[in-house]
Design a protein around this nucleic acid. Structure first.
Lengths: 260, 260
DNA sequence: TTCGTCGAACTTCCATACTACCATTTCAGC
DNA sequence: GCTGAAATGGTAGTATGGAAGTTCGACGAA
């Protein structure tokens, strides 16, 4: 973890030095943890502790604590006072709730985009699609993931919906954990590219309703594997269905050390 | 500010003692500040300082800092490192962006609610409407505000959309500041009640499209006064239109002490 | 064996000291 | 009087120590 204007005490940190505005340590910790959680390198149920993470990243507990707060706001960890901080397990309800919000917002974005976006933006999106086809042909899921994100974000920004994208980004975090879990046998990538293309064609043609429908179909496709995954990886998922939001803090999984 | 299991050192705090789970100090500070900002008791542009707030509330800087972090995540304050923390001015773009998201999500909620909600919930919502009529007749805007919030939240929960409501709640914060500014000469309250009734009737009749349309019309009504207010209270608003999200931190309003 | 009690080890939460940085002011030099 | 560099006061960011609370296992008595 790199402290501002100080030789990095951690070996892992690449020597990025170019850009100023290397954000605060707390932000770096937040990004690191968030990425680890979303990509499932930190598995659901894992116990985190301020001290442990601080020691591992060679920083004090304070910035770690602030990162925990932000992660907790995003619904990725749960802080139980005096007990511990845990990576929340995937909850089928939380995922479908996130999809509901994402669908509502992103379909609205598609409609708005159909009313007109900058010409350059349209070209950029088409370029992303080409790259996706390459990644699909090369069977490179990770790169495909990156490009998928770029497409959705690009469309949002083209439609001048920065706040809406921020909302989607947060909902997406819940969904992405499922997608990472389903990486091996997900929907064929060419199929997803075709759906992207369908959205983009509708947008380009100014057909709002069609863009909306295409986007909706696309977003519903993504989580088709959810029930199967919930059965295949029960330890990653919240057990029952209805016991969300109970007041009494449910005893979380037995403390399981973070083992990278 | 009341410390858990400690005699409250601040006189202002009402002696709520009944319920356990008096949340942490940081949470109390957060709620206090958030409420003050949304109701415009802390006017846009006001400088907050960790130390000052801490002194005023008789707590240390630490919980205040955590409250600032959360407020900053909500887009209600902006933290400029080594310079200060400021209540963000109302930005026309931010408000319309919030409305865009809220409209997308809440209309989706209305559609879902039309597919069926618990019978009790429907009755509860009708009860809220009656109370709103009373408040409208009594010309009691504050109470009307509370009931308005209750109606929208009640509909969301009836449709089992808790996460969606959380998203709306955050978008609403931006919009509510405008509403508080327009309290004197806002849309007549009876008109708003009628719109609520229209939504609810469509929901009860299972007419999803009608509920969507009614909700959309209702939400668009709320901010009609925005342009006028931006002219009437220029010091509360972000000046131009397009210079959002500039990387270089724009020098905020000259430090103006919080004066309660 | 089973139950209750106590204690050690852990956690988050809060308070406080210190650091780095920014903005303004002050004041010497011209 | 004017300019510019150093001093000063104020800010958020970080580090660290202690307080309050939870968990869990050891230990002993029934």
């Amino acid at each position: 973890m790199q402290r501002p204007s100080t030789p990095h005490p951690l070996g892992e940190v690449p020597p990025i030095e170019v850009s100023r505005r290397v954000n605060s340590i707390a932000d770096q910790v937040f990004r690191t943890l968030r990425s680890s959680i979303v990509t499932m390198r930190l598995t659901p149920g894992t116990a985190l502790s301020e001290q442990e993470i601080a020691g591992r990243l060679n920083v004090s507990r304070q910035p770690v604590r602030e990162a925990f707060i932000k992660l907790s706001e995003s619904g990725l960890v749960r802080v139980l006072p005096q007990r511990g901080t845990f990576v929340v397990k995937i909850s089928a309800k939380a995922v479908t709730d996130a999809r509901f919000v994402r669908e509502a917002v992103e379909c609205a974005i598609a409609r708005r985009a159909s009313e007109g976006i900058p010409a350059g933006a349209l070209a950029d999106l088409r370029a992303i699609l080409s790259e996706q086809r390459v990644a699909a042909a090369a069977a490179d899921p990770e790169q495909f993931f990156v490009l998928d994100e770029a497409f959705h974000r690009g469309l949002a920004h083209a439609a001048d919906c920065t706040y809406a994208w921020k909302v989607i980004e947060e909902a997406k975090a819940q969904m992405d954990r499922v997608r990472f879990l389903s990486l091996p046998d997900a929907t064929p990538m060419d199929h997803l590219v075709a759906q992207h293309a369908e959205v983009l064609d509708a947008v380009a043609a100014g057909k709002g309703a069609a863009a909306d429908a295409a986007m909706r179909a696309h977003l519903r496709e993504i989580l088709k594997s959810l029930p199967r995954l919930a059965q295949a990886f029960p330890e990653m998922f919240e057990p029952g269905a209805a016991e969300e939001e109970t007041e009494a803090a449910p005893p979380p999984a037995r403390r399981k050390r973070t083992a990278r």
